[in-house]
């Protein structure tokens, strides 16, 4: 298969993202217009394994592994390729973290984590029930199933 985006010298390639989730991946990584590094993205690319997939490439930066693993919340099959001098130096599949801070917004409006003026970040315990990912609010205990609907 042809590369949809040109090769990068150094950086992080996030492959096998469930199609449609690339923008959410950027959000989880905190990538925005304020980010210095060049970022490219391909959506709905044909894939043998997944039918269709998204890809995100961040040039000139090795993103921290813990940060990358948070992608598993919405794209459990994502693979990370760390590129050095055009070569893949390390490849791994994201691992679902057991606990995440920030990122997920608790849907319970009566939850302390949504109190406007309190110095508080959301905290969620993450686990799998069969194939499904479930997240439970550390503060109020609310359980979420489709985590992608609650990314802050």
């Amino acid at each position: 298969m042809q590369l949809t985006i040109s090769k990068i010298k150094d950086g992080t390639v996030i492959d096998h993202i469930n199609s449609g989730m690339a923008l959410m991946v950027l959000r989880i990584l905190g990538i925005s217009s304020g980010t210095k590094e060049p970022v490219s993205m391909a959506m709905n690319v044909p894939s043998k394994k997944m039918g269709k997939k998204d890809i995100v490439k961040v040039e000139g930066k090795f993103i921290n592994e813990d940060e990358l693993n948070r992608i598993a919340l919405i794209a459990p099959g994502a693979t990370i390729n760390l590129i050095e001098n055009y070569e893949i130096r390390k490849k791994f599949r994201v691992v679902l973290p057991g606990f995440v801070e920030g990122i997920i917004k608790c849907p319970n409006s009566n939850c302390i984590s949504n109190a406007e003026r309190e110095p508080i970040r959301s905290k969620f315990h993450v686990s799998k029930e069969g194939e499904a990912i479930v997240a439970r609010c550390h503060y109020c205990g609310r359980k979420l199933r489709s985590v992608e609907d609650f990314i802050a």
Binding site: N110, Y139, G141
Partner: peptide, 10 residues
């Protein structure tokens, strides 16, 4: 005792 859920844990 507080009206918001999770307030005691916080």
């Amino acid at each position: 005792r507080h009206p918001l859920e999770g307030s005691a844990r916080f």
